[in-house]
Design a protein around this nucleic acid. Structure first.
Lengths: 191, 191, 191, 191
DNA sequence: AATGAATGAGATTTCATTCAT
DNA sequence: CATGAATGAAATCTCATTCAT
């Protein structure tokens, strides 16, 4: 692992635990087992470390989704794979998910001059899958596409957050993925 | 308005704009039109100001929900009123909603020794309405109650966030409330 | 003395002793008997402290020269009074003179966005006296006015520097002023 | 050019532009096209680089003056050649002159344990020429030798500085040398 | 000899908090 | 109660210097 990646990994761990604002550059350095100053060889500032963390990880996530979804044609299949992939990724790197859940949300507000294009691209993947499924007649025609997208994203994101913040490991994320899929497909209420 | 409330109102505005960590006590004082030191007459510390803000506002919100929901018997009616009340409150105080959306989420992480009971109580209102509806046979029996609650809460919360962050006022929050209700009741997919 | 002036006085002492670059903000604070942070209430940065020091002192110096020279008509008289005033001021505040001799010279080079107008105004006082004397036929007509001004300014400035840097107090500054006047008026060589 | 000389040349350029304190060792290394660490093979520290720069250059300057002045007997001739040599050297290496003008002046203040003997020797050359001329009856007998020396040195040094800092190249240094000679020999005022 | 990544001491600056008025 | 100047601990960031390669 390159030293840059080492620092990012340490930052994910530290930011996940204490939040970006409460983390000290020194915390990250200690977590990485390097000197404080070394971080400034690879990143211009603490803010730049967070942004770089976002962009680097987003690139991976984005590619991963694209790779998994590209071979699929059936929109229902895509939706299923999307949900699986989403929850799997959360499971594979819980700390990263924690940073994204909390810090990414407010990044646009607090990081000057940072227009979070990578995150927008990522959200569009989800949006595209849902849009596509809707256009192929899978979702109810009366629904506003934009609200539908937000509704689904919010629902699964909150489920993911529950698991992320569940420090006692009571929750089964695979089960959650299946339930989410079931709720989306079969609806919530008895018809 | 008492000076305490004045400070809380100023804090809501400032924290909404810049986030808690990036806000200075001086910013809040200036927004309130008072001296820095005055804040320390009413609050023990900056952290205490945030916690007090949460608790004070939570009390209002909690009472408001209880008041609206108490007279109702029909769980479907309750669900509808709950959604209406939820989106109305967001609309009535966008800045407060913004603070809650972002800061409340991470509050457990950086506020030492603060177990956010008021927020848990508030979530339980939502949970109770949903549980009640489920137990009365309104929601599908196969669904895990805990996941259902989280799914719905996440969905509407994300819709609310879209409106909160929509600086161009393109979105109609009343429409969003109706759509959310529709999605929950009629499901997303064509049966 | 205002706290601002107290800090400037401390800065003069510290900068004179160690030079601006080698002086720490903490040194100035300790010299002033205040906390480090207090300096930042009155000055934006260490650079700003130096610039403010220049401007504040320059204003005094400028006014002082103008006051002394205004009532005079005779250019020779002006020149004499100018020289007296110049050396007197150096004697009255040796440390300030030291800062000006060394730090002011390089300030334009190292302080970003600082065009040292006050120093230019001050130099013009000397220049004007010399120009005036020249135009009234006091100095030799063949001499280039600009070079003449620089020649005289350099000569007296170097004499002042000798005294400033003379830590053993062997030199008599009043005598130096008289000698300078004599050299200028009677020339250096035997006619 | 040896690597040591290469580094000194780079240092002259960098120090002239930004001043010693504001120059980073890295700047010098980049200017020289070498690695940071290489500088430490040839010089013990950043301070040592400045001192070595002074001493090396001083040796050249000293030898140069001695060489030019040794064959001459007539003190007036010596004075003339001295002035010519002085201004020529300034012209030949403007950046070096810039470093000497500013950094040499304050070197005693921030370089620990450095008694700048080479500079004193160099000043003595000027002093000796002037003293000699004075003793041979060229300068007025009433003048204090020490002040005379300082007066002349300051005058020509300031003239040199004007040219060094004249970024628009409006000044003619050869003309300045002649004028200085004229002012010294013929005096400033109309007899 | 040359490199340049890494170090870490130390500098500037910030800001929550106090307290004399 | 209210003020806001003052504090000083602590944070970010810099950079001269080292040393394994």
């Amino acid at each position: 692992m390159s030293k840059r990646d080492l620092i990012i990994a340490a930052a994910v761990k530290v930011f996940a635990e204490k939040g970006f604002c409460n983390s000290k550059v020194r915390d990250v350095a200690q977590q990485a087992g390097i000197a404080d100053g070394t971080i400034y060889i690879y990143f211009k500032s603490k803010d730049d470390l967070l942004i770089s963390l976002f962009e680097t990880k987003m690139d991976h996530i984005y590619s991963h989704f694209v790779e998994r979804l590209r071979p699929l044609k059936n929109p229902v299949e895509k939706l299923k794979v999307f949900l699986e992939t989403y929850f799997n990724m959360i499971r594979e790197d819980r700390e990263l998910a924690e940073v994204f859940q909390v810090e990414l949300r407010q990044s646009s507000k607090f990081l000057k001059d940072y227009h979070n294009q990578k995150f927008i691209d990522y959200l569009n993947i989800i949006g595209d899958v849902i849009n596509e499924a809707k256009m192929q007649g899978f979702f109810r025609d009366e629904l506003n596409t934009n609200f539908l997208k937000v509704f689904i994203f919010g629902a699964i994101d909150e489920m993911a957050r529950q698991w992320i913040l569940d420090r006692e490991d009571k929750l089964d994320i695979n089960l959650m993925a299946r339930e989410a899929y079931d709720m989306i497909l079969k609806g919530l209420v008895i018809p």
